[in-house]
């Protein structure tokens, strides 16, 4: 199943553009609507990241926090998230889905049970924000045995030695955090600097697909065009909040936003 992620990157490379990854919080603003959003953006996005809402999201900025709180308030549980994934996979079998969450949720749910559910519902990859290398070695191995891609994170402060070690233990995909900030912060670093660090990672192992995330909006996405993939998260969550506040339909607004983003990287 994890090959779907590789296929998505290959397809984007063939079209000479970075893969577009979107991040939405599961259950935002309702269980039904988050599925609708996934369905509508899957036409233009290459890989869909689905956030598991946690009420102590240490890596997330205010936009994603607002989305997560809204989802929790609507009573979303992990089982509901798997149901959303399952329903989406019935609609579109080939679009890869990555779950992104915090380790405590998985730990309380039970690792084995969680991975089993991931497999049966059709999850292709996992990002566990607060489970860094080398603490994630065991869990990453378990993921592999369930043919789920565990995505390792790299940041601007990761040393070259550590980068090499992490890449050695990584699966098909890597995630480079563009700057020292929570999600949705203003991009404080120049895109030149980001691409410089990105190229260091690519030089260690050019075969691994590496995506860039954090602080990417309509304004900044074009400058990171040469990466394997770019992740847009907070901008989407912000749009959902805005749509709700103005009494508009988030599904159509998000779809417009994704089309605009895609136009900029093609």
């Amino acid at each position: 199943m994890s090959n779907l992620i590789n296929l998505a990157f290959k397809k984007a490379k063939k079209e000479n553009r970075p893969a577009l990854l979107t991040y939405t919080v599961a259950g935002d603003s309702s269980k039904k609507q988050s599925l609708e959003i996934l369905k509508s953006i899957s036409k233009n996005a290459d890989i869909l990241e689905l956030g598991v809402p946690h009420n102590t999201p240490v890596a997330d900025g205010s936009q994603i926090q607002t989305s997560a709180y809204r989802a929790i308030k609507n009573g979303i549980k992990i089982d509901d998230i798997f149901k959303i994934v399952k329903k989406f996979k019935k609609f579109n079998k080939t679009k890869p889905i990555i779950l992104m969450g915090y380790y405590n949720m998985i730990f309380q749910y039970n690792e084995k049970k969680f991975l089993n559910k991931c497999k049966t519902s059709g999850v292709n990859g996992l990002i566990v924000v607060d489970l860094p290398w080398p603490e994630n070695k065991k869990f990453a191995k378990k993921c592999k045995s369930y043919s789920i891609c565990f995505i390792q994170l790299l940041s601007p402060t990761t040393s070259v030695k550590r980068t090499k070690n992490i890449i050695k233990d990584s699966h098909d995909m890597l995630y480079y955090i563009s700057m020292l900030s929570t999600t949705g912060g203003k991009l404080k670093v120049s895109s030149k600097k980001i691409m410089y660090n990105y190229n260091i990672i690519k030089r260690v192992n050019p075969k691994k697909n590496c995506v860039i995330g954090f602080g990417i909006t309509e304004k900044t996405i074009r400058s990171l065009k040469s990466a394997d993939g770019v992740v847009v998260g907070s901008a989407i969550c912000k749009e959902i909040t805005k749509s709700i506040n103005y009494g508009q339909n988030p599904v159509t607004n998000i779809n417009k936003l994704i089309i605009n983003l895609k136009k900029k990287i093609v």
Binding site: H54, N55, T56, I78, N104, F107, Q108, D130
Partner: peptide
């Protein structure tokens, strides 16, 4: 309270059954 993972450490932590703090 049960053991959970919060702010980078495994520790006893006040949480509900889902793992929300």
């Amino acid at each position: 309270s049960k053991i959970g993972i919060l702010h980078g450490a495994a520790q006893y932590v006040n949480q509900n059954l889902d793992g929300q703090i």
